[in-house]
Amino acid sequence: MSNSDDKTQAVSEKTVETSDRPGGSSKGIIVLCFFIGLAASLAFGWGVFPKLLYSRKQQPIDFNHSLHAGVVSNGCESCHFLRDDGAYSGAPKLAQCIDCHQDVQGNSPEEAKFVDQYVKKGIEVPWLVYARQPACVFFSHAAHIKAAKMDCVTCHGKIGESEHLKVYEQNRISGYSRDIEGASLINMLGFKKHTWDRMKMDDCSECHQKQKAVMGSVQTQKEGCFVCHK
């Protein structure tokens, strides 16, 4: 019997304690906690996480596009040209630079660095390519600039007018360049002002659909994953 008595007593004590606490204040704290959690995670998700996700690297040489664009005769294609077989040459090799930069020309420390560390040693500059699509994608520059007569700015923006190279940001997980994924968070979500704000698959298809451009393979006229993907 004594057991049963003890239980009854314990229960009644607990009830008393609870009813003693003022209900209003408890609810307030709960709501407050909710908002604290919400705010903190929003701040982390929107503010900290995007910074953590990308590694930031400086280009080996701070190249001045605008300066060079003024000197060359054929615009972007002077250095970024299509090879004879239609392949795109990408970032220039030393071979294209040494005609002028066999020795230091001006007084830019970046040029001096370029000549000393790369030209003289015959080492190619390991440029970080902002716009490189991943290895699983077929992309042909020739089809876009020759057949569709697009200009460079449409996809690459006004990099040709820049005086410095921006920091290269790379997604630590996917390995993509920030320029492919979207320059800002808003761009990432697909809201873009410029074509070059983001260059993911949706952006390819958006343009192809809008322009009613070739939708399938040039060779087979068929559509499907393997038209663009390896």
Binding site: F34, L38, A40, F44, G45, W46
Partner: peptide, 12 residues
């Protein structure tokens, strides 16, 4: 719950 809701509303 707040943190979960916030995370879901963030790009993370």
């Amino acid at each position: 719950i707040g943190a979960a809701a916030g995370t879901a509303l963030s790009p993370l």
